[in-house]
Design a protein around this nucleic acid. Structure first.
Lengths: 203, 203
DNA sequence: TGACAGAGTCACCAGGTGGTGACAATGTCC
DNA sequence: GGACATTGTCACCACCTGGTGACTCTGTCA
């Protein structure tokens, strides 16, 4: 064997990512990681301490969350109107989440397990989300009739759910999740909803 | 022992429900069901054939999906306006899903496993959803600027995601998911969104 | 009373999991 | 060269899983 501990470490970490993308968190175990990386599992314990710590280190490397710039898709300065801002970020959320199977897998995992790691990952996202809201030109304060934050949360959550659902479903309320046309409808609906809600004029 | 096969069958089926509510599908196995029901696992094979068939039979008993009447919350005849109709059904979706932990667990399961059973369960819901859309007074046809079905799907998906997420998260984009006030904000936002989108006037 | 089918019990199997101790190979430094 | 720590290999452990064969018990019916 190669006898290069640093290389072995990264091989293990890469195996985590690959396994995550292929099998999700269901098949995530010491034996599976050892098999996938072609490394003896005892090295996982030696180098990382255990599965928890390995996953923690994998998470610490990051790279599966889109940055704010990626979410916006264009320079933030170009989004002077709060409605454009919201529409662009929601579209960006959909776009960026769809192209990140590992991120999707983490979010699926968060949906039915809660531990220090999932809490930390969620906290990071939550923090980023709040930060983005703070960047909204003019802010997103609620008044008597409108609650822009709740509305944005709802639409973002809807897009998230549909992306996660698309792995195991072909269709949702008649909308084809396998086809790009279906996603186009959803993108336009999201934009139309937020425009109508914030300005009172659909589309 | 009691020597009553019918009683034993129902004890097993009830154990499935209890286990589902407590542990979700993660801990769903022959041994666990046998333990939870206080019945030898060999009887599961004798009476049902295996885990798949047992789950199938459990699903066939139904009772975890809200009916259309429950979703509407009030007589459909009272919902003459398509906007009221949509708002009432979205609010009903949230209300009914929140009170059904087993249904939530099934939907979580559907999110990362796909088999004949999940497909069938999803097909039932899909069918019901389409049926509800058909009941909308005046229909929900898309025109050049609006796609009411996509908008409703998005909001419904958002409510679904937040309900599922509430089990493992306390907060989403600053909205408190443990508190009734948070759900009130979301309900009002959903209604405001659909009203604004369909009529052009928020709230 | 005795035969018999149905209901329930028990012991076991192969295979997988997380986890560890003992050992062999390899490079490094004196 | 020899000492030594590091890296990697292998065999093993207890435990749990799904699944099955063989047994005993019990109620029913002739």
């Amino acid at each position: 064997m190669e006898r290069d501990s640093e290389k072995t470490r990264t091989r293990i970490l890469e195996a985590v990512g690959g396994l995550l993308a292929r099998k999700g968190f269901a098949g995530m175990g010491v034996n599976a990681i050892a098999r996938a990386s072609g490394v003896d599992k005892v090295l996982i314990y030696r180098y990382f301490g255990g599965l928890r710590e390995l996953l923690r280190e994998y998470a610490a490397r990051g790279g599966f969350w889109p940055t704010i710039a990626e979410l916006a898709g264009k320079p933030l300065a170009a989004l002077g109107d709060p409605v454009d801002f919201a529409a662009a970020l929601l579209a960006g959320h959909l776009r960026e989440l769809r192209r990140r199977p590992i991120t999707q897998e983490i979010m699926r995992w968060e949906l039915h397990e809660r531990n220090e790691l999932t809490d930390e990952l969620a906290r990071f996202r939550e923090q980023q989300g709040i930060e983005i809201l703070g960047l909204a030109p003019g802010g997103f304060e609620a008044d008597g009739t409108r609650d822009p934050v709740a509305a944005a949360a709802l639409i973002q959550a809807g897009l998230t759910y549909l992306v996660l659902r698309a792995k195991t479903a072909d269709v949702y309320l008649g909308i084809d999740l396998r086809d790009e046309a279906g996603w186009g409808r959803l993108t336009r609906a999201a934009e139309g909803l937020v425009r109508a809600y914030l300005k009172g004029v659909p589309s």
